[in-house]
Design a protein around this nucleic acid. Sequence first.
DNA 1: AAGAATTTTTAGTAATGCTAAAATTTGTAA
DNA 2: TTACAAATTTTAGCATTACTAAAAATTCTT
Lengths: 213, 213
Amino acid sequence: MSGQTAGTSKRSEDHGPLANRLRERRRELGLTLKAVADAAGLSVGFISQIERGITVPSLSSLVSVSRVLDVHVGDFLTHQPLSADESTQTHQSDRRVFAVSESSVTYERISSSFPGHILRSVIIHEPPGHRSEPIAHEGEEMMFVLEGSITIEVDGERTILSKGDSAHYPSTKVHSTWNHGDDPATILWTGTMDVFCEEPTTPFHKGKNQKAK
Amino acid sequence: MSGQTAGTSKRSEDHGPLANRLRERRRELGLTLKAVADAAGLSVGFISQIERGITVPSLSSLVSVSRVLDVHVGDFLTHQPLSADESTQTHQSDRRVFAVSESSVTYERISSSFPGHILRSVIIHEPPGHRSEPIAHEGEEMMFVLEGSITIEVDGERTILSKGDSAHYPSTKVHSTWNHGDDPATILWTGTMDVFCEEPTTPFHKGKNQKAK
DNA sequence: AAGAATTTTTAGTAATGCTAAAATTTGTAA
DNA sequence: TTACAAATTTTAGCATTACTAAAAATTCTT
């Protein structure tokens, strides 16, 4: 662009969500195309074309660029426009508490659902002595102890978490919890993979196999 | 594969993280290749090749498949093997409390950092009367009120959240909080975009512009 | 065992992911 | 304002592959 920008918008061209986000992020970081390209092992011209929506990168190239820009790939990828209808707040008094028929653990789901959402969150009430099955699955998760005290084991490593303590780990590591105390424990679980089924009667940490449609 | 699987592992072939995850997810849902292919508008053979790691899909094809499998694209994309060194638990007593020089709000970061992590979590202590600047940004976020009571506004809609209440919404909607009460409020914030800078002295909700390297 | 359903394999093509280098634009110092 | 370096865009082109249709093989069901 020449110094004279009459009639043209200087930085608001819409090249598509991915393109715009990549350029935006690069500018946030104050990086040049060359710096990104060199670090990602790609050519300057290619990065330029990606950012202007002329070319769509392959997955591997996108992963490379994302790393350079220190952003998770998923953050660059969008879904449909979001619906305005879903209720996004939950009040303690309104939540359904659901239980597993074979266990006295109860759950309150607090995360809401909207297109593209990643976060899932559940409040778990664990009675004294309760042990969860060791499990590993995709995603990552975080536990914040609201009440009581639990022992958490992640990849063989045990830690005691008391009220106000937290743990955050990749769910790909084998993990489990144990309420070792004499009192019920209340845990705020937040994760990026829905291991708590939508149906209140479906067991926690059990398989979710369904028949073919 | 024939009914006789002597010497061959039936379902544990390692075709790469993406391939494995796609197949795993499809099987979780009990869908056939054909069902997925039809719904995604792709060919059966192609899905098969993707799942066996023979072919890598383009971004648009991956988005299509992800939608059919009801998973966010980012969940299918992994990073490097995870380091075993990072500390993933935080205890209340160990956390640094940091503050913004121009505000009396304080923060405790409780999320840990490991390659590929998406979740970020911070405990926010808001004094009475504090209002956050309205902001919108990428990702989604959740607020859980640990103590006190706040008014939250999302996309123009206000709700009062008290202890134990929560809100979960796309961060792309303009949002802000107000501690309307006479007491300090404590909020557990969890999100998929790091709007709380790593450096304790960097202002909350301020720009993050840096100079070119 | 038969047959349907499902998955894998095969062969092939249109498209494109990505490059190097030239051209243009932008930024900076004098 | 000018000169020049730095940054970005454009261009031309090729190697690779994204993806297909259909055949072959495998698995599942009755």
